[in-house]
Computed example of a mutant assay.
Amino acid sequence: MGTGSRIIARIGVVLATVVVSAPPATAAPPRTPWPPPVTALAHDGVRATYDWPLRPRPRVVRSFDKPARNWLPGHRGVDLAATPGQPVLAAGAGTVVFAGAVAGRPVVSVDHPGGLRTTYEPVEPSVTAGRRVGRGALLGTVIVGHPKCAATACLHWGLRRDRDYLDPLPLVRAVPIRLLPTGTGQARG
């Protein structure tokens, strides 16, 4: 083996040693896809992980209306028909990160795995920040006072990932299953 070949071989050993001994990269926690893909709702437990924040299943009286830009008007959540004093439940397991007033309205916020945060207002909180809650845990009770509520009282239920507002309804709505015809193995449409 010539001198040049030995130098190249040593460089290869040094590079291999550096690559092998390098500390592993820290991976970011997995993010829950949004909207959840059909397979996630049907098979990966997303539907089973979240539930309605009111019992029985409430009527949606105002839908999600995401504005084109964050500073424009819109409706960054859904309004659910409620009654004053009705229990508000955590839609999913997580940690209460806020329970207090925002712009004079009582709000409870819960962080969930995958970078999601649900918000509930107007709610008289029965929890404090830092408390871990399971799906269905009592967060507080609905109080009257949500603006533009089309019912006796409304729970405004919101969902965010970072600063991005999302429609919370895909968390709890079942995805219809469509069967393809059998026989030839090809779908007709």
Score class of each variant (00 low, 15 high):
Gly74Thr: 10
Thr182His: 08
Ala82Gln: 05
Trp34Tyr: 04
Gly158Cys: 03
Tyr165Asp: 08
Thr141Asn: 13
Asp79Trp: 01
Leu169Ile: 10
Thr152Ala: 15
Pro122Cys: 12
Asp111Thr: 14
Arg105Ala: 12
Pro170Asn: 03
Pro168Arg: 02
Gly85Ile: 11
Leu166Glu: 00
Gly136Thr: 11
Arg131Ile: 11
Arg163Ile: 05
Ala68Gln: 11
Arg160Gly: 01
Ala40Phe: 08
Ser109Gly: 07
Pro125Ile: 08
Leu89Glu: 02
Trp34Ala: 00
Gly134Tyr: 08
Arg47Ile: 03
Ala25Lys: 13
Leu180Val: 13
Leu139Asp: 09
Val133Phe: 12
Val88Gly: 01
Arg132Gln: 15
Ala103Asp: 12
Arg132Lys: 14
Asp167Leu: 00
Tyr50Pro: 00
Pro87Gly: 02
Ala16Trp: 03
Pro170Ser: 00
Leu166Lys: 00
Thr119Ile: 07
His43Trp: 04
Thr184Phe: 07
His146Asp: 06
Pro113Asp: 15
Gly189Met: 05
Val38Leu: 11
Thr184Leu: 10
Ala129Glu: 11
Leu72Trp: 06
Pro181Thr: 06
Val144Gln: 12
Gly77Asp: 08
Trp52Gly: 03
Arg178Phe: 14
Lys66Ile: 06
Val88Asp: 00
Leu72Asp: 09
Gly189Pro: 06
Asp79Pro: 05
Gly92Leu: 02
Val107Gln: 09
Pro37Gly: 10
Val102Phe: 14
Arg62Ser: 14
His112Ser: 11
Arg69Glu: 15
Trp52Ala: 04
Val172Thr: 11
Ser109Leu: 15
Ser21Asn: 09
Thr3Phe: 10
Ala93Pro: 09
Pro36Gly: 02
Ala81Phe: 04
Val102Ala: 14
Ile143Ala: 13
Gly140Ile: 02
Pro84Phe: 12
Val61Ile: 11
Gly2Ile: 03
Thr17Cys: 15
Pro23Cys: 01
Pro53Trp: 01
Pro58Val: 04
Leu72Ile: 00
Arg6Glu: 09
Ala103Asn: 10
Val60Asp: 01
Arg6Ile: 07
Val175Pro: 04
Tyr120Cys: 12
Leu15Ser: 07
Val127Thr: 13
Pro56Met: 12
Tyr165Thr: 09
Leu159Thr: 01
Cys149Trp: 02
Pro33Glu: 01
Ala129Val: 07
Leu54His: 04
Cys149Ile: 04
Trp71Tyr: 06
Ala68Met: 04
Ala25Phe: 15
Leu179Pro: 05
Arg76Glu: 00
Pro106Gly: 11
Leu72Ala: 08
Val97Leu: 01
Leu166Met: 03
Pro24Cys: 04
Val78Gly: 06
Thr118Ile: 02
Ala153Ile: 06
Thr26His: 12
Ala27Val: 15
Val61Tyr: 02
Val46Leu: 00
Arg69Asp: 15
His75Trp: 05
Gly92Ala: 12
Ala40Asp: 14
Thr3Asn: 05
Arg76Val: 01
Val14Gln: 06
Ala40Tyr: 08
Arg76Pro: 02
Arg188Glu: 12
Ala42Lys: 13
Thr119Glu: 14
Leu89Asn: 04
Ala22Phe: 09
Thr95Arg: 09
Thr49Ala: 15
Ala42Pro: 04
Gly130Gln: 05
Thr17Leu: 15
Pro147Met: 07
Ser126Tyr: 05
Leu180Ser: 15
Pro176His: 06
Pro181Tyr: 07
